[in-house]
Design a binder for these strands. Structure first.
Lengths: 137, 137
DNA sequence: ACAAACCCTATAGATTTAGTAGATTAATAA
DNA sequence: TTATTAATCTACTAAATCTATAGGGTTTGT
């Protein structure tokens, strides 16, 4: 299941991507428009900033803005920052790999093989979907 | 992320599917072979039985066995019983649908549209993979 | 100076996960 | 019939994660 953090984060990014100019948008503005708790959104946008997706401007007239063009932000990047691994099991993850305690041999594991398929398909979607694609309504 | 419950459940089902005859297999046997905590596996197999996947026999020589041929058990069924919804968001789920609190219009929601794509792909894999397919090593 | 707005850390409540304990029931074999 | 084996069932708990919220601090524009 997708966490609210990820869901809200994507919604906020979409909101920013729809902006015509690159002017900073205040958290409160996004919060009201998307029905997201202000303080929660604050922490979400902060992590997006720390991970190089967003820039920010402090003080009056400040807010958050995209650092790149929406078409240059693939959903793989967004998902990994907000949700973590794209794979359903760590032993199949490309960026967050971890060995399973119980499996003596990964290649012999039925779950492993199945989840590789799922990961490949999901990854394919996220790789080929940019933030710009999400705005096309 | 896939829960251990689901992971262990699938492993246990695969173990049973690999059995040549339809004789019941004791929980302890599966538990040892697959390195799964006995008591935890107990509850997992119980839910699989209650959901019509497994049959059981008590007493000596008892245990669990598959009620159908492995090729007649699609992974969609298994996943829904063990893991719940296949979708990443409830507003996109076929079998566990729930409206989002924050979304006034689903069709306008970028997350919704993206997650429909992911669901369709994942669903496709699970529909076209049976327990029998998992045994082919 | 002052207000707007982001920055940062901590924490609390709710929920889920992963597993445990222990008594009970049913089937089999001797 | 009795002992043994193995599933059944209820209830509980410890740990982790999620979903926020609190409460300041800092920066900026006017």
């Amino acid at each position: 299941m997708l966490s609210k953090k990820t869901k809200y984060g994507i919604k906020a990014l979409t909101y920013l991507a729809k902006q015509e100019n690159k002017n900073p948008v205040a958290i409160a503005t996004i919060s009201k428009s998307e029905n997201i708790s202000l303080k929660f959104l604050e922490t979400i946008l902060l992590t997006l900033r720390k991970n190089g997706i967003l820039g920010s401007k402090k003080g009056k007239g400040g807010g958050y803005y995209l650092l790149k063009s929406p078409s240059d932000i693939p959903m793989t990047t967004v998902m990994r920052i907000l949700e973590g691994p794209i794979s359903m099991v760590p032993c199949v993850s490309l960026n967050f790999y971890e060995k399973c305690d119980d499996c003596p041999d990964e290649n012999a594991c039925s779950v492993h093989r199945l989840m590789i398929k799922v990961r490949d398909n999901t990854l394919d979607i996220f790789r080929n979907t940019s933030l710009a694609d999400l705005c096309k309504c």
